[in-house]
Simulated assay, not measured.
Amino acid sequence: MTASKIYVNGKFLGAGLNGVHRTAAHFSDALLRQGGGQTEIELLAPRPFSPDPAFPRLVPRVVQGRLGPGQGWEMLTLPRAARDGLLVNFCNLAPLLHPRSVVMIHDVQTYLYPEDYTGRQAVAYRMLLPWIGRRAVRVLTVSDFSRKMLAKYGIAPEAKIDVVHNGTDHILDVAPDPSILARHGLTRGRYVMTLGSAKGYKNIRRVFDAMREPLAEELPLVVAGGPPATAYEARGWTPPAGTVFTGFVSDAELRSLYAGASLFAFPSLTEGFGLPPVEAMHCDTPVVAADAGAMPEVCTDGAILVDPADTRAWRAALQAICDQPDLSADLISKGKARAEQLTWASAGARVWSCLQPLL
């Protein structure tokens, strides 16, 4: 059975564009740009939504149901509204009752590190994902690593899964806001940057330990976004002296922090894709990333890849970039070349190529 129309599950619209929701907005926008002139594509949303200026194409038809805008809408109201077409879901979940559903499942973190999620969330995902994978006509994911993990945990066989790498060039769509540097007393090119998270698999403690003793240039560590220092200390992770915690940062501030850093450190134990290292590459910043999860596939030779459990290796890699201008310049050049391959235009073309055989 084929379909002549595409519906996009717009449950994420109006719910705050962050994390997977932000990525879903980019994928939806890219699909509309790529396939909108060739077939009818309609977004369906559970609530009224004022278009985001960053995504002017994302204007949905609001379909309100008696079960509200949550899981009841997604599982019962949405499949009825989209029953005559192919339903595309970019946010890990999809209604079990729709007969022609495509779902993007980004990763299997709730299987790999369930302790980093609320008990209810981990149980719900582990229960639903195999059902959703069986019911979907195709499954999309964002890396070959995730494809293998989805198969390993019985969510879908590899032959049913298509890989669509994320786009990453969204970081260039916003003008940088350098006031973030002055506000925290930072000097461009004179700090090491990482992203904040107290989740265990994000492994930020590895960077804390690697920078316990100051690097030769005595560069401070800047933790962008994430919780305050007390959240890490509560887990027994002691930040290096002088660490700067920025708290929430806007996209414009984040771009300035990337661009101003002497290097960017990304020590995650696993990632389904790993956007931040490539965002840093777009901003001409050398990257040290963990040799784990999808990072080798995503970063290729654009970053130094280090064992996420080896503190000495992390310190050596950070120090090498500080000590060797030629190494830093080489990483910037290779990183930029890799980042330019991972655009939202190419992501949209890939999604469209996966959907066309189903139409």
Rank of each mutant, 00 (worst) to 15 (best):
Y7R: 08
N9P: 11
L13I: 06
G16L: 00
N18R: 14
N18T: 15
H21E: 14
H21G: 15
A24R: 03
S28C: 02
A30E: 02
L32T: 10
R33H: 10
R33P: 03
G36Y: 06
G37K: 07
Q38L: 12
T39Q: 14
L43H: 05
S50D: 13
D52L: 12
F55I: 04
V63D: 03
L67A: 10
Q71L: 14
P79I: 12
A82N: 08
D84S: 12
L86Q: 06
N89P: 05
C91F: 07
L97I: 08
S101E: 05
V102R: 08
H106G: 03
E115D: 14
D116N: 08
Y117C: 06
T118A: 13
V123M: 15
V123K: 15
V123H: 13
M127F: 14
W131C: 15
L140Y: 13
K148W: 11
L150G: 05
G154Q: 03
E158V: 13
I161E: 04
H165W: 14
N166L: 13
D169M: 01
H170N: 14
H170P: 02
H170L: 09
H170F: 09
I171H: 10
V174N: 09
I180W: 01
L181V: 02
H184N: 07
H184F: 15
G185K: 00
R188D: 13
R188S: 14
G189R: 09
G189E: 12
Y191S: 03
M193Y: 01
M193P: 01
A198W: 01
A198I: 00
N203Q: 04
R205P: 06
V207N: 09
L215K: 02
E218S: 12
P220D: 03
L221E: 04
P227K: 00
E233T: 12
E233G: 02
R235Y: 04
W237E: 09
W237L: 07
T238N: 06
P240D: 02
F245G: 05
T246M: 01
F248A: 09
F248D: 01
F248T: 06
V249F: 00
V249N: 02
D251P: 10
L254G: 00
S256L: 01
S256Y: 02
S262A: 15
S262Q: 15
F264K: 01
S268W: 06
T270P: 08
G272N: 07
G274C: 05
P276A: 05
P277V: 06
P277A: 05
V278W: 03
E279A: 01
M281H: 04
T285I: 10
V288W: 01
D291K: 10
A294N: 11
M295N: 11
P296I: 11
D301T: 13
G302E: 08
I304R: 14
V306C: 07
V306Q: 08
D307M: 00
W314N: 03
I321F: 00
S328W: 06
D330N: 13
K334G: 07
K336W: 09
A337W: 08
Q341M: 14
W344G: 04
A345E: 14
A345M: 11
S346F: 12
R350I: 10
V351H: 05
W352N: 10
C354E: 13
L355A: 09
L355S: 10
Q356N: 11
P357W: 09
L358Y: 01
L358V: 07
